[in-house]
Design a binder for these strands. Structure first.
Length: 481
RNA sequence: GGGUCGUUAGCUCAAUAGGUAGAGCACCGGCCUUUUAAGCCGGGGGUCGCAGGUUCGAUUCCUGCACGACCUACCA
């Protein structure tokens, strides 16, 4: 706070005057009977009755011996009316109030000549004195840096922002409800992990003093949730924060919220069914249509989710059958397409680069891209009846990747081989490989049932459902430079 | 990392072909007992993002830096 700001000085003087009058500017509690919205909704039954409300002053209109104020609470804004003849306490007190102060009022509910539902205040309590002026009432707060750094001001000033975060919360509740009804159990697994796994990403590191041990912030929940499947918890999920030590842009925040779920005796097709049903629920409740408008584009669910194979989609876009190409030939094609293949040590990684460049931007409809190359999917099970491909899919919406799912690999001998080939790649200099996790292998060797697993990026789903352009608009306190 | 644009009052924004800045809201004083972006009269408030340079003089021109937005690259 800028202590020298004259407006702050004026407010501090008012605070002193309140104290001189024997009024406590920061009391402890207020009992309210109704939220602002309730007062408006139930006006007919509450009309003329004594009610109480509390909130923050958002506007003051003084007309000499009577004045109006707008009081904003969690639900809405309600107008209050203060009249010198009917206010039991000193009317001059009004002069000591400012926009931003918290007030509790009691009085009769009425309507003004203009038809506005209003509390005719009989008793007034100052609940908190505000010392710093709020952002302007009409234009709100639009400076994006201030909005993200001082989210509290954004929430006070911008209704839309409140709506986004309230709805984000409801979306997550709905997802929990959906999974709970299918007998999934919500669990919590470690965020601080001695080995990181479940994805190809650079981790954050941490240090535990008393154990003198290096730890990683998790990049995924996967390997711990699978341990629970091995332990006999047949359906588990976790909604939690993952951390990836990579660049930030409109789709990436270093910490983000991920849903992961695992279902024993299921495969990746069952995971597709879950995605379809879940989106059906979310669309019904939060969009109210089978079409989502996202940033001017229409994403239609009318015809359901399209299923495209990874190699099929690549072939369609490029006219090349990459399936049969050698690593060397694949690299040549990538270079022809102008793709940087530095640091890519397998055919799968090169294909991935080509895929992101050529295919992803063109995926318009809700789509499951299926059957990924084996060498970039070390935790997924071989596809039945097809070589070098695994049972894995990623759901795409509006050109955005929103998740990842497999028929989970549950053969411990094969899993060890996959880890070893990842380790070999790491030796060659590939920074983004799966770590060999002995404890996980050991767990799997006790026997793991066939399992379907699914991860969904919650932030991105919220972005799409609420038509928000940046991940920073759906995370309350995004990381800023 | 590269490119483009931006940063002026508490907030939202103007202006200056180089002569140290204005409006609305907010704030202060006055009038006003049903207003609602209340109104009318009067007033105060600025290291023009930061640091250098050019110049008699820089908010304005130049360079660097910080922060931000977008694009691009990177990124399961």
């Amino acid at each position: 706070m800028d202590e020298t700001l004259d407006q702050v000085e004026f407010r501090k003087k008012k605070l002193e005057k309140l104290k001189e009058k024997g009024i406590a500017p920061y009391p402890y509690k207020f009992v309210r009977t109704h939220l602002a919205r309730k007062l408006k909704e139930d006006f007919e039954t509450l009309k003329g009755k004594e009610v109480s409300a509390c909130g923050r002053i958002r506007a003051i209109r003084i007309h000499g011996k009577s004045s109006f104020m707008d009081l904003q609470d969690y639900s809405e804004t309600i107008q209050i009316y203060l009249n010198a003849d009917t206010l039991p306490l000193d009317y001059d007190l009004i002069e000591l109030l400012d926009i931003g102060d918290f007030l509790g009022v009691k009085g009769k509910l009425m309507k003004t000549r203009m038809g506005e539902v209003t509390i005719w205040v009989g008793d007034l309590t100052i609940l908190s004195k505000s010392l710093h002026p709020l952002p302007e009432k009409w234009h709100g707060l639009s400076d994006s840096e201030e909005r993200h750094r001082k989210r509290y001001l954004d929430l006070i000033a911008n209704e839309e922002s409140v709506r986004v975060f309230k709805t984000r919360s409801l979306i997550i509740q709905e997802i929990r409800d959906f999974l709970n009804k299918r007998n999934f159990l919500e669990v919590e697994t470690p965020i601080l992990q001695p080995e990181y796994g479940g994805g190809f990403a650079k981790p954050f590191t941490a240090y535990q003093e008393s154990l003198k041990k290096n730890l990683y912030l998790r990049i995924a929940d996967e390997l711990y949730l699978k341990r629970l499947i091995i332990g006999g918890m047949e359906r588990v999920y976790e909604i939690g924060r993952d951390f990836r030590n990579e660049g930030l842009d409109r789709f990436h925040n270093p910490e983000f919220t991920m849903l992961e779920l695992y279902q024993a005796y299921a495969d990746y097709k069952d995971m597709m069914e879950i995605v379809e049903s879940l989106f059906g629920r979310l669309l019904e409740r939060f969009v109210g249509s089978s079409e989502i408008k996202y940033q001017g584009k229409v994403i239609s669910f009318e015809e359901g989710w399209e299923r495209l194979s990874y190699f099929g989609a690549l072939g369609e876009m490029t006219g090349i059958d990459f399936k049969t190409l050698s690593f060397e030939a694949t690299k040549k094609e990538a270079l022809k397409l102008g793709i940087n293949i530095e640091g890519l040590f397998t055919k799968g990684k090169v294909l991935e680069a080509i895929f992101e460049w050529v295919v992803e931007p063109k995926i318009e409809r809700p789509t499951f891209i299926m059957d990924y190359p084996k060498d970039i999917s070390p935790l997924a099970k071989d596809k039945r009846d097809e070589e070098d491909v695994v049972e894995r899919f990623e759901p795409f919406l509006g050109g955005m990747e929103i998740g990842n799912a497999y028929s989970e690999l549950n053969d411990p001998i094969e899993q060890r081989k996959r880890f070893l080939s990842q380790a070999a790649l790491r030796k060659k200099g590939d920074a983004k490989t799966e770590s060999l996790d002995e404890d996980f292998l050991s767990a799997m060797s006790y026997g793991m049932p066939p399992t379907g697993g699914l991860g969904l990026g919650i932030d991105r789903i919220v972005m799409i459902l609420l038509d928000q352009p940046s991940i920073r608009d759906v995370i309350l306190f995004p990381l800023l430079r």
